[in-house]
C-alpha cells in the first residue's frame, strides 16, 4: 500500500521536532512571565476595585472592562504594530536595541526582542483583568459575619485578612486561578501573528519548510496538551498551598 498522500513524505526529521520543542519552551517561558506579572497586577486591580476611593475604583474598573471586552488578537496587533505611533522614536529605538546585563557567576541577561516585550505586555494586561475578577470573587465568598466575629474577638484588620479571609479565599480561587494560568498558556499562541517564535509559530514554520501540515500540527497540539494538562495536575496536587504561577 502506498503511503497516504496527505501524510506526505513520512515523519518529521528530528531537527524539526527540535524546533517544535524549542517553540514549546518559548511558550512555557512566556506563559510563566505573563502569569507572574498578571497575578501581581491582578492583585493591585482587585484591591483598587475594592477600594472606597473613587479615584482608585474607576480607573481600575475601566481598565478591566477595556481589556476584557476586546479580543486579545486585536490587543496584540495594536501593541506591536501600533507601538511606533504611541511611543516616541527614542523610546522605540532603545526598546529595539539589544542590551545586556552581566549577572554574577558569569551569566548574562539578554534584552528580549520587541516581539517578546509586546507579547508579554499585551498578555499580562489582558490576563490581569481576568485574574482580578477571580480574586474579587474569591474574597467575596468569605462571609461578612466571620469578619465581624473576628473583630469581636479583638483581631486586627491585618490578622483578619491573614488568618480568616486569605486562607478561605485561596482555597476557593485555586481552581479558577489555575484555569486562568492554563488560559495564559493557550493565549500565547496568538503571539505568532507578531513573530514570537512560540509553539504555534514554529508549527507553521515546520509546516512551510517540510510541507507536512498534519504532522506539524499534531505534534504542536500534543505539546499544548502536555503543557496545559501538566499545569493542571501540578496545580491540583499542591494541596492547600498558594497557587503557583
Amino acid at each position: 500500500m502506498t503511503p497516504p498522500s496527505w501524510l506526505g513524505q513520512g515523519w518529521l526529521a528530528p531537527h524539526y521536532l527540535g524546533w517544535l520543542l524549542h517553540g514549546a519552551a518559548m511558550t512555557a517561558a512566556l506563559a510563566l512571565c505573563v502569569s507572574l506579572a498578571a497575578t501581581l497586577l491582578g492583585i493591585l486591580l482587585c484591591a483598587a476595585q475594592d477600594s472606597p476611593l473613587r479615584a482608585l475604583y474607576w480607573p481600575a474598573h475601566l481598565f478591566c472592562s477595556l481589556h476584557r471586552n476586546t479580543p486579545l488578537l486585536v490587543q496584540v496587533l495594536l501593541w506591536y504594530f501600533g507601538a511606533g505611533g504611541l511611543l516616541p522614536d527614542v523610546t522605540m529605538q532603545w526598546l529595539n536595541t539589544p542590551h545586556q546585563w552581566a549577572l554574577p557567576l558569569g551569566f548574562s541577561l539578554d534584552w528580549p526582542s520587541f516581539e517578546w516585550l509586546a507579547a508579554w505586555l499585551a498578555l499580562s494586561l489582558y490576563s490581569a483583568s481576568f485574574i482580578s475578577a477571580e480574586l474579587a470573587a474569591g474574597l467575596n465568598t468569605v462571609a461578612r459575619g466571620q469578619k465581624l466575629a473576628a473583630r469581636a474577638l479583638g483581631m486586627s484588620e491585618w490578622q483578619i485578612f491573614r488568618f480568616i479571609v486569605l486562607p478561605q479565599a485561596l482555597r476557593v480561587i485555586r481552581q479558577p486561578l489555575l484555569g486562568q494560568y492554563t488560559a495564559v498558556i493557550k493565549n500565547t499562541s496568538l503571539t505568532m501573528v507578531i513573530g514570537v517564535a512560540e509553539l504555534s509559530y514554529t508549527s507553521r514554520q515546520v509546516e512551510s519548510e517540510t510541507l507536512l501540515a498534519f504532522q506539524a500540527f499534531a505534534v504542536a497540539t500534543l505539546l499544548y496538551l502536555l503543557l496545559v494538562i501538566g499545569t493542571q495536575l501540578a496545580g491540583s496536587r499542591q494541596a492547600n498551598g498558594a497557587p503557583d504561577a
Binding site: Y80, F81, A83, G84, Q93, N96, S113, F114, G195, Q205
Partner: peptide
C-alpha cells in the same frame, strides 16, 4: 527558508504578510 538556511547569522522574524513586515521595519523591530 532561504535566509534561514544560507544566512545563519541573520535573525529571521516571520509575519503574516509583507505590509505587516514593513510596519515592523518602520517601528525599528
Amino acid at each position: 527558508i532561504y535566509l534561514r538556511e544560507k544566512y545563519s547569522k541573520t535573525t529571521v522574524v516571520a509575519y503574516d504578510d509583507t505590509p505587516l513586515a514593513f510596519t515592523a521595519l518602520r517601528n525599528g523591530n
